[in-house]
């Protein structure tokens, strides 16, 4: 397929995944807010940190209050990582590849866009927030399902899937970093009894609470780290996402697994093996924040390698 088209499909999926993550993270806070009968600003600030947009937020808003944070993360088009901006970017990419994605996929993305950019979206987001974020998450699931059911599982599909899993791996690691820092400010706190409500919320923001419970039972900080970084079956764990990204990348090129024919395959394969042979104890011992920082660097390198290999050759 055309390099330009492949790039658009890839970014279309990345933006959609980003929108879904914003919705998930904020949605969980809203639930927590009800359980705790209100949240302090300290609980809303991390929502902005997950996207790495603190400076942009501070420029336009006085304090990380509930309504400021929700506005910033949902309908604020000056924030490139707001839900509306992400969905608009996904839709703009989709518009340039309408002939490649199926009509059904296009239509779902277009409807999603019309909904989140409609004038009523602001009221919906601020005054019926739980339902609003639920509807965003659902729309993302519908798009993902429609892609799976209506697109041929060929090159475009693999680029779309590659974008989705690269973005998701990145987002899960950010969620873990920010919340972990908030819940366990110092390494000495590891192993202390934890606030079950808060940790469960962290798992829920990755849609992982139920899966975690089945595998690990009661919540402990280390097992949450193990689960979100390494679980082999949970579709939002970093390890799972990296492996699936690798599968899609090899689907594009036809290179056998455990071999590489370009820089993107090399970097992604190397990261996948490292994650396979690392455990949560090592991560916590060496500092979770440092580990996630290093991961983010790796994701950036992988993203650059994908671009150079497929989208902007020479």
């Amino acid at each position: 397929m055309l390099s330009r088209t492949a790039e658009s499909v890839y970014w279309m999926s990345r933006y959609l995944e980003r929108a879904a993550n914003v919705a998930r993270v904020v949605g969980v806070n809203l639930n927590l807010e009800i359980d705790l009968a209100g949240l302090a600003e300290e609980q809303w600030r991390p929502m902005v940190q997950v996207g790495g947009d603190e400076a942009a937020f501070a420029e336009r808003y006085a304090a990380p209050t509930r309504s400021n944070v929700i506005e910033f993360l949902t309908i604020d088009r000056t924030n490139p990582n707001s839900i509306a901006s992400c969905v608009a970017a996904a839709r703009e990419n989709a518009r340039t590849v309408r002939e490649i994605i199926s009509s059904e996929v296009w239509q779902e993305i277009n409807e999603f866009y019309l909904d989140v950019t409609a004038p009523e979206a602001r009221r919906f987001a601020l005054h019926d927030a739980v339902r609003f974020f639920g509807s965003v998450t659902r729309a993302c699931h519908v798009v993902a399902g429609t892609k799976s059911e209506t697109m041929e599982h060929g090159e475009a599909w693999n680029f779309s899937r590659l974008g989705r899993f690269v973005e998701r791996a990145d987002q899960t690691s950010r969620i873990l970093d920010v919340k972990y820092f908030l819940l366990l400010p110092s390494a000495g706190d590891v192993g202390r009894p934890v606030d079950d409500l808060q940790w469960s919320a962290l798992l829920r923001s990755a849609s992982g609470f139920e899966a975690y419970r089945r595998t690990w039972g009661l919540v402990s900080s280390e097992s949450v780290v193990a689960f979100l970084l390494f679980d082999r079956a949970f579709p939002r764990s970093v390890g799972y996402c990296v492996t699936q990204a690798e599968v899609s990348l090899h689907g594009v090129t036809g290179t056998p697994m455990r071999r590489f024919a370009n820089r993107a395959e090399q970097l992604l394969g190397r990261l996948a093996s490292e994650l396979d042979y690392t455990d949560a104890g090592e991560v916590v011992g060496g500092g979770l924040h440092e580990f996630v920082d290093a991961l983010q660097d790796r994701f950036n390198q992988i993203g650059d390698a994908i671009t150079a290999t497929f989208f902007r050759q020479g």
Binding site: L2, T96, R98, E99, S103
Partner: peptide, 12 residues
Amino acid sequence: SFLAQQMGVELV
């Protein structure tokens, strides 16, 4: 884009 899609050819 519609014609390219319906013919199954690349839109360049």
